[in-house]
Nucleic acid binder design. Structure first.
Length: 297
RNA sequence: GGUUUCGUGGCCGAGUGGCUAGGCAGAGGUCUGCAAAACCUUUUACAGCAGUUCGAAUCUGCUCGAAACCU
């Protein structure tokens, strides 16, 4: 059975003009766009996450943009489910869907699926986090070593997020998280075409600096001030927001905060590239040439 | 002109005879439910010259440079 439906995924670092390309593609194929971005899905975040403009959002249907609240917990599994549904919906109209985004893990979850792990009761999770907050990393390390020694041997032992995850799974299911990790890539009922945008580093850095300046001119600081009461939320541990919270706490000057945003955005872009370069199925392009990309498809 | 204090890697900063300071930035990387997160690896020093010493970023002298005060 050959698959006659396809999802075109545009990946690449932040500020590489992916949004623009995705809009052109969607217009060309008369289809919709699924955003694969862990921050643009939040309706409360606007200027700092470089969303498409109102006009662009009206001209093309976008999924996973403004679809969630920063109060909700959004993660790779939520995205996988949401995006698969969206694709199904799009395929009722046409044979091609466009996905665009920079969140590597979300895209991986969409393409390959995640192993089934039973949902963890939030009270278990909260208790672990509370204990960790009070007793620190060494407590977490001891707990994991005691409860799940096989996982402990093979994990990043100083990475609290991974340790918390392993601990909550074994406490809630009685089984090690390693038992759930089958590493089976799910087969999707559609083709996946991956296109990566890779600009020269100097160009990318220049784009980033210009975009940060533009965000400030467009009122990012005002947006951040309004969100200040919620700054503890994970969704606000975001480049462009956390630095301005620090500025508002007088930890450094506005000028320093802006420099930090630029630096952190460049670091983020580098991490994105590291992730996507590992994916051998990505077809890399250095120019935003629609014809060239359509030729690949 | 004089007195004093100081000069540590791209930046901040500890060290006052022998033992990797550390942080930031830079470079490279990891990744199955917080991923714009979290974590790992890593390059670059002791202003210069001469001296004391087995051994000097650390002590002495001179030179250069900076700051403060005095005239």
């Amino acid at each position: 059975m050959t698959k006659h439906k396809s999802v075109i995924i545009i990946v690449g670092p932040t500020a590489s003009n992916k949004t623009n390309l995705s809009l052109q593609l969607a217009a060309h194929f008369n289809t919709s766009i699924i955003s694969a971005d862990s921050r643009q899905c939040f309706k409360e975040l606007n200027i700092g996450v470089a969303k498409p403009s109102q006009q662009e959002l009206q001209s093309t249907k976008h999924y996973f943009i403004n679809s969630h609240s920063i109060q909700e917990s959004v993660n790779a599994q939520v995205f996988e489910e949401y995006a698969l549904k969206a694709v199904e919906e799009i395929f009722q109209q046409t044979d091609i869907a466009v996905m665009v985004g920079g969140t590597g893990m979300y895209i991986k979850a969409f393409c390959e699926g995640l192993d089934e792990i039973p949902e963890v009761d939030s009270s278990i999770r909260n208790q672990i986090i509370e204990n960790y907050t009070i007793n620190g990393l060494s407590w977490l390390q001891l707990e994991v070593e005691k409860n799940d020694p096989s996982f402990w041997q093979h994990t990043e032992q100083k990475n609290p997020q991974r340790l918390i995850r392993a601990l909550e799974v074994i406490k809630s299911t009685g089984k090690s998280i390693t038992e759930f990790r089958k590493n089976i890539k799910k087969e999707r009922p559609f083709n996946i075409i991956r296109i990566g945008i890779d600009l020269p580093k100097e160009q990318l850095h220049q784009n980033i600096e210009e975009r940060v300046d533009a965000m400030m001119n467009n009122g990012l600081l005002e947006e951040v001030k309004l969100l200040q009461p919620l700054q503890h939320l994970n969704a606000l541990q975001t480049v462009g927001y956390k630095e301005l919270f620090s500025y508002l706490h007088k930890m450094y000057s506005l000028e320093e905060a802006i420099t930090q945003i630029k630096t952190h955005t460049k670091q983020y872009a580098k991490r994105q590239l590291t992730w996507f370069k590992k994916d051998k199925l990505v077809n890399w392009k250095s120019k935003l040439n629609l014809k060239e990309i359509i030729a690949v498809i």
